[in-house]
Simulated scan of single mutants.
Amino acid sequence: MSFTDKAKAKAQEMTGLAKERIGDATDNERMRAEGASEQTAARARQAGQNVKEAGRDVRGSFKK
């Protein structure tokens, strides 16, 4: 995962957190759910990339 992709995923996660908190403060269930969904999507993307990087690391250790 490139630095740009990591930054985009983190920005999406922070946007989701902000939406969720605004939804809590204004008692807006739709915004709260939308924020939680964005956070989940960003975390899933980050987790997938971490697994991919770990696989590359394991594969690289066998090539030495």
Rank of each mutant, 00 (worst) to 15 (best):
L17M: 14
R59L: 06
E13R: 10
F62E: 03
G23E: 07
A18S: 14
V58Y: 06
M14Q: 07
E34D: 13
E13K: 12
F3T: 09
Q39I: 06
S61E: 08
D24P: 13
K6E: 07
A33V: 12
E13H: 12
S61Q: 09
M1K: 03
E20G: 09
A18Q: 11
G16E: 01
A41L: 03
F62R: 04
D5Q: 05
A36E: 12
D57F: 11
K8Y: 05
K6L: 11
G55D: 11
R43F: 07
T15C: 05
A33C: 10
A41H: 00
G35M: 10
Q39N: 06
S61M: 10
R21C: 14
R45T: 04
R56A: 03
M31Y: 12
G60Q: 13
R45H: 02
A9T: 03
E13F: 13
D57E: 14
Q39A: 09
Q12W: 02
M31L: 15
G23P: 11
K63S: 12
R45M: 01
F3P: 03
A42C: 02
A25T: 14
N28H: 10
A25K: 12
A11H: 05
T15D: 06
V58F: 07
E29Y: 10
V58K: 07
A25D: 13
N50D: 06
G60H: 08
R32K: 15
T26R: 11
R43Y: 08
K8C: 04
D24K: 15
K8N: 08
T15E: 06
G23S: 11
V58H: 05
K63H: 11
A33P: 08
Q46P: 04
A11D: 07
A33N: 15
Q12G: 05
R56N: 05
M14E: 08
K64T: 08
K52M: 03
N28E: 07
A54M: 09
E20V: 07
T4L: 12
T15M: 10
G55M: 09
N28C: 11
M31K: 13
V51K: 01
A33M: 11
S2A: 10
R59Y: 02
G16D: 01
R45E: 02
A33Y: 08
K8H: 06
L17G: 11
V58G: 04
K6I: 07
K64N: 09
A44K: 00
A25Y: 12
G48L: 00
T15Q: 08
R56D: 02
R30T: 15
Q49E: 06
A47P: 01
A44E: 00
R32L: 15
K63M: 12
D27M: 13
K64S: 05
T40A: 15
A42Y: 00
N28Y: 06
K52F: 03
E20A: 15
A18H: 08
T40H: 13
A41T: 03
A44L: 02
G23D: 07
F3Q: 11
F3S: 08
A42L: 02
R45V: 02
M1W: 01
F62I: 04
A42E: 00
V51W: 00
A42M: 00
G55S: 14
Q12I: 02
A36S: 14
R21W: 13
A42K: 00
K19L: 13
G35Q: 06
